[in-house]
């Protein structure tokens, strides 16, 4: 993530400057889906809201095992915060049709809010489980997952539909085979625009206009600089005395 621009006039990040790639956490989400497909024969659809360039990422998802790919793309979605993003995604989900399980990554590596999963569940008015690190069991009518909340590990069993957000601990994503990659190159990505999902939308406006939050300013944090005192091998003893001093000074000595 070396090239990201901030458009100070419009108060938003210019994401054109960043590459469009599959968010690493979403590879874990996709791997989870593929494992379920292998077990149950489920059908996998992938949905992304983003610019046309995101088509490549969707094709990669097909190479990794997805059956259908949808790109929700419209100029009017630009500048969306998590509320506008989630409302748009939820409307697209309802437009696409029936589903049992929605899987999202724990968070993205850029905005990194981890909000889109739970908010999409709210707009769909379904249950969600976040921080899912294991699928304990699953069958036609129920799914049991492991999640980490309240400084403890919990198992939760739900009936469908459900949305989960998965952590990196859930699996190790497999690489697509060369053959699968070739096939995916020809995969068809279905396009959805604002007009297609409008009926199902639960907010009045989308994109920047439909977003209650905005980035007012971007600051590069000051480097924390400390005065470092380095002791050499020969000066070890004085270093130990210093450590003892610190422990006493900070009142950290066990009595």
């Amino acid at each position: 993530m070396d090239k990201v621009l901030f458009d100070s006039e419009k108060g938003r990040i210019d994401r054109k400057s960043a590459g469009v790639e599959v968010n690493p956490f979403d590879l874990n989400a996709l791997e989870t889906a593929v494992a379920i497909k292998e077990q149950t024969g489920a059908e996998i659809s992938v949905l992304s809201m983003g610019p046309n360039r995101a088509e490549e990422a969707l094709k990669e998802a097909v190479a990794r095992g997805a059956d259908n790919a949808y790109l929700l793309s419209d100029q009017k979605f630009a500048g969306a915060d998590t509320i506008a993003t989630s409302a748009s995604l939820a409307a697209a989900v309802e437009t696409i049709g029936a589903y049992d399980l929605i899987i999202a990554g724990e968070m993205s590596v850029d905005g990194d809010t981890a909000q889109v999963g739970p908010q999409t569940a709210e707009f769909l008015n379904i249950n969600h489980a976040a921080y899912v690190s294991e699928l304990i069991s699953l069958n036609e009518s129920e799914i049991t997952i492991k999640t980490s909340l309240w400084q403890a590990n919990y198992s939760k069993s739900f009936s469908y539909p459900l949305l989960i957000t998965v952590t990196k601990d859930i699996n190790t994503p497999r690489l697509p085979s060369f053959k699968a990659k070739l096939k995916a190159r020809k995969a068809e990505v279905k396009n959805l625009t604002l007009a297609d999902i409008k009926e199902k939308l639960k907010i009045d406006k989308v994109g920047f206009k439909g977003s209650p939050t905005w980035v007012d300013n971007i600051v590069v944090p000051a480097e924390i600089s400390r005065k470092t005192k380095v002791f050499s091998e020969e000066e070890k003893e004085s270093a130990y005395h210093k450590i003892k001093e610190i422990l006493i000074e900070k009142n950290l000595m066990e009595d």
Binding site: K229, V230, S232, E235
Partner: peptide, 8 residues
């Protein structure tokens, strides 16, 4: 970054 370093 460290306040105190020991090369050992």
């Amino acid at each position: 970054l460290a306040d105190y370093g020991i090369v050992a």
